[in-house]
Design a protein around this nucleic acid. Structure first.
Length: 446
DNA sequence: GCTGCCGGGGT
DNA sequence: ACCCCGGCAGC
């Protein structure tokens, strides 16, 4: 097997920390290939590649490959990890190794040799020690192509994941003292430090992918859930606007279109919208609980969801056709002030569905807990405001969308003929009740 | 002026 | 709750 084959087998076996180290140092300290009697030194890991290493220059361990194909590790007692990366140099000299197993177990036998062969497969066992608290950096003297580095990272990830399946091991005191910045909540410096190392390896990779790799590499089962449950949201800072979106582009577009009154795709804002939103961390567990309460298909949906953080769904409608002019009244025919109007249809055939294809965005807004009725009112107002905005009148940031103070909230006269017009005064008995009572016609709605 | 309908009052 | 109407505003 050539070196490429080794790569394909994810020969990278060096991983540290294992199950009891939530912040394993995964470093690449491989230097050279060498030969010994009956063994081949396939890698040496020294402390020169480790940042903040108090024993600078010291060889931490040497990885040997014996004739049986088993990997042996030899080194000092305080070996924290055995990490390796295939280098160009090694790629040329690495002998064929088969049945290499990507297993890393936590096992402290107290001896110098921590390797065994099981079923013809070699296992690299890592010993946990005080070294686990060390921060690692990527060895800068090892040129690694991006794609290959990526593969090696993934291989290391596989190893680590196997490590975490090992028997539980109590946290060593050394870690507690050396690394005090390990809260139960996510720790940005960790991901930053680690990811920095991998960024050197895979600068061309997408950040998200790199982040995923980092999480995959170093995640703890329980902390991962917390880590994933926190999500950065972007909150609009505009006065009286509580829109919260999950993406910066979305909030920028929101600010640009809603508040700045600019075209959503135009670039003339020159980043002005950046001043009108801020990031916020949101516990997605709480949010999802709230959402599940609001989900119509939720089997456990209560009639009045007791939300710790209440979400009101804002159906932001964007209409491009003149149909939108009449949409509000058609959409929101929930009126209970008069009994004769309660029988009116809840929606018009010409009205777009609230959750229909015209719905472009659904925003989450943190607001005081509304009742079901107030939620409807909120939707109503939101839609009306949006429709007023999209129907041609550009909103000034400080201007409240009040069309005409003098005209009050009187809705514009509809286009359709009413009962009076259709039947005439002679057949007043054919009018709908509302028309007879000089109220808004309920038969011929707009 | 016609029409739609809001607001208010009467029963 | 039901019914009626004055009055306003859009057309």
């Amino acid at each position: 097997m050539n070196s490429e084959g080794l790569l394909n087998k994810s020969w990278a076996f060096g991983i540290s920390g294992c199950s009891s180290a939530p912040r394993p140092v995964c470093n690449v300290g491989l230097r050279a290939s060498d030969r010994k009697a009956n063994c081949k030194i396939i890698a040496t890991v020294d402390s020169s590649t480790i940042q903040s290493d108090p024993l600078s220059g010291r060889i931490l361990c040497t990885l040997l490959l014996d004739n049986d194909g088993a990997v042996k590790e030899q080194g000092s007692e305080d070996i924290a990890f055995c990490a390796t990366t295939l280098t160009t140099e090694r790629k040329q000299t690495q002998p064929a190794v088969s049945n290499m197993v990507q297993t890393c177990e936590m096992e402290d036998r107290g001896g110098q040799e921590r390797s065994c062969t099981r079923g013809g497969s070699a296992e690299v066992r890592c010993q946990h020690s005080a070294w686990s608290g060390l921060h690692a950096r990527t060895s800068s003297h090892i040129p690694v192509p991006v794609h290959r580095a990526h593969r090696e990272v993934m291989a290391a990830a596989a190893l680590t994941s196997l490590c975490t399946t090992g028997p539980p091991r109590p946290e060593p005191p050394a870690r507690e003292s050396s690394d005090q910045s390990v809260p139960s909540t996510p720790s940005p410096p960790l991901s930053t430090d680690i990811s920095k190392g991998f960024l050197l390896l895979s600068q061309g990779d997408d950040v998200t992918e790199e982040s995923e790799i980092t999480h995959f590499l170093f995640e703890d089962p329980i902390p991962r859930k917390r880590r994933n449950s926190m999500k950065v949201m972007f909150k609009c800072l505009w006065k009286n606007c509580e829109t919260v979106l999950s993406s910066s582009s979305g909030i920028q577009r929101h600010v640009r279109t809603i508040h700045l009154g600019r075209n959503g795709d135009s670039e003339d804002s020159e980043g002005e919208e950046d001043f009108y939103y801020s990031e916020m961390e949101v516990n997605m567990d709480t949010l999802s609980e709230g959402l599940s309460c609001l989900t119509p298909t939720s089997p456990t949906m209560p009639t009045a969801p007791p939300l710790p953080t209440v979400i009101s769904l804002r159906a932001e409608l964007r209409y491009a056709s003149p149909l939108s002019q009449s949409a509000p009244s058609a959409l929101c025919h929930i009126r209970t002030d008069h009994a004769y109007q309660a029988t009116a249809p809840l929606s018009s055939p010409t009205a777009p569905s609230m959750f229909g294809p015209n719905k472009v965005e659904t925003n989450f807004s943190w607001q005081p807990p509304p009742t079901a009725q107030s939620t409807q009112i909120h939707l109503d107002n939101m839609m009306e405001r949006r429709l007023q905005h999209t129907s041609g009148t550009k909103l000034h940031p400080t201007a409240t969308p009040t069309p005409k103070p003098s005209s009050g909230n009187r809705k514009p006269r509809g286009e359709a003929k009413k009962c009076r017009k259709v039947y005439g005064m002679e057949k007043r008995e054919l009018w709908c009740t509302a028309c007879r009572w000089k109220k808004a016609c309920q038969r011929f709605t707009d």
